[in-house]
Amino acid sequence: MQQVQQQTTSDPILEIRGLTQNFGGLRAVSDFNVTLAGKQLTGLIGPNGAGKTTVFNLVSGFYQPSEGQILVDGVPTAGLKPHKVTALGVARTFQNIRLWNDMSVMDNIRVAQHYRLGYGFFHSAVRSKRYRQREEEIAREATELLEIFELKKYADEYPRNLPYGTQRKLEIARALSIHPKLLLLDEPAAGLNSSDIHELIRLIRWIHDRFDVTIWMIEHHMDVMMELCTHIKVIDFGQTIAEGTPDDIRNHPAVVTAYLGDDKI
């Protein structure tokens, strides 16, 4: 039974309650809770293997949680296939860029609108009116998106021929063509040089201002996190060890211990 919701802007976009994930005997995530309200820019950090990406994989429906509940915009995602979760408005990027390398940049953006195509095989075969109309809209939307991301000049290029930083940008643009309410960025700065990182920070801030989207990001570059996020959550061994503003986190004893180790021998 779904409850009737009072739709207000302060309703959480994402709500995770008591999320636990076991891989065999390994508890990758344990009793994880988070509530993201609209338009926030939140960070998730932790040492390698802390379970950050696992949390993202759970939210995007890639794994089914062992325990706990995930609600996207009030809708529980339990039992939904990833493409259905995406259709609810959850887009993500990957730690290692996962673009479709043998499809043009334009097609990469177009295919990511798959859930709202509104036509199926039959329409594509007979080229019905609806098909032509929708294809036109899809192409127009994709062009607009490429334009505002300044990627228009690469529209017919294959992603693998683009510089690494541009590929990152394209992957974020592709995620935004979902029209997400929640954008998950998994280490967007990985593999970028320092000037690219500066541009990335500007890009994320710009996306956050321009689109009505809640951003949740994982990142190892602390300067990126400190500059962008208003709220940071720290996990280690699947458990939340600290959370708060960037300043709180910087000096939090548990965080220092997790990253630098205990001085007790």
Partner: peptide
């Protein structure tokens, strides 16, 4: 994987 995550009903 990218197809499924990008809303393609694989």
């Amino acid at each position: 994987v990218a197809a499924e995550i990008m809303s393609v009903n694989t």
